[in-house]
Design a protein around this nucleic acid. Structure first.
Lengths: 126, 126
DNA sequence: ACGCTGTCTTGACGTTCTTCTAATCAGAGA
DNA sequence: TCTCTGATTAGAAGAACGTCAAGACAGCGT
């Protein structure tokens, strides 16, 4: 990384209201793209996309790693690595309770990504 | 490619109605994840995210490569390569008219990605 | 027909990603 | 304290990615 002008972090975005207009309205600033692209990248793997959906759709809002791992034909460390990627992207949080670790989705960031992609009717008609 | 059970393609999804419920409601099937993950991956680069936003927010619904390239400090071939990635992900289409090539967003796929990430109030409150 | 401009493809190089095995850490129970 | 189980970290191999320079292709103008 050579030139990193603005120190815009994920918290600056997920804390406040919607970061910016949908990409159909205005061009995204470079700093915003730098902050949000990693979240999209984290969802850009089939395994992580399924993990994310299992976490986000968990009945109690959380799900144990021990329930996630057997759902795939991948080794435990590999699943753990993918979960770390989702964690570092800010899409999920982890909490250890006793022996087990539970994962929970972060709706704020998800909603931001969704609103960024929202396409209004005007774009379709026009 | 070893085991490719269902021949689910991008067209199967973008042609019809919403592919599936938001990931907050149900776990997405493996085939759907395989089809949609590349679209998220394509958006997972700051340059491509900005390109996508410039294309999607273009006043006439389309924008010339000659307007995209000078907006970045990257070589022409590199921009062209990123545009190809967006094209292969199904997020944009390209059309040559005379000397110039114009890019246009594909709202269908964008709307699918957005609805997949949609978080209802129930998830937040519950 | 020729050259000019705009865009894409090719080939290469260094970096990052995905996956594994092996080793380590955290907590529960005897 | 020792051991057992669940989860993460460390290290390594192979594939994929981002970038550029050089070359190829497409269309316009002379």
């Amino acid at each position: 990384m050579s030139k990193q002008a603005a120190a815009l972090t994920l918290n600056d975005l997920s804390a406040g209201q919607p970061c910016c207009a949908p990409i159909t309205e205005d061009r995204i600033p470079a700093e915003t793209a730098t902050v949000l692209a990693p979240a999209f990248k984290a969802l850009g793997d089939p395994v992580r996309l399924q993990l994310m959906s299992m976490i986000a759709s968990a009945p109690d809002g959380e799900i144990c790693v021990c329930d996630l791992t057997p759902a795939f034909t991948l080794s435990g460390p590999t699943i753990s690595h993918h979960l770390k990627t989702l964690r570092e992207a800010g899409l999920v949080t982890a909490e250890r309770r006793g022996t087990w670790v539970y994962y929970r989705a972060q709706p704020g960031l998800m909603r931001q990504l969704a609103s960024l992609l929202t396409v209004e009717a005007s774009v379709l008609v026009g």
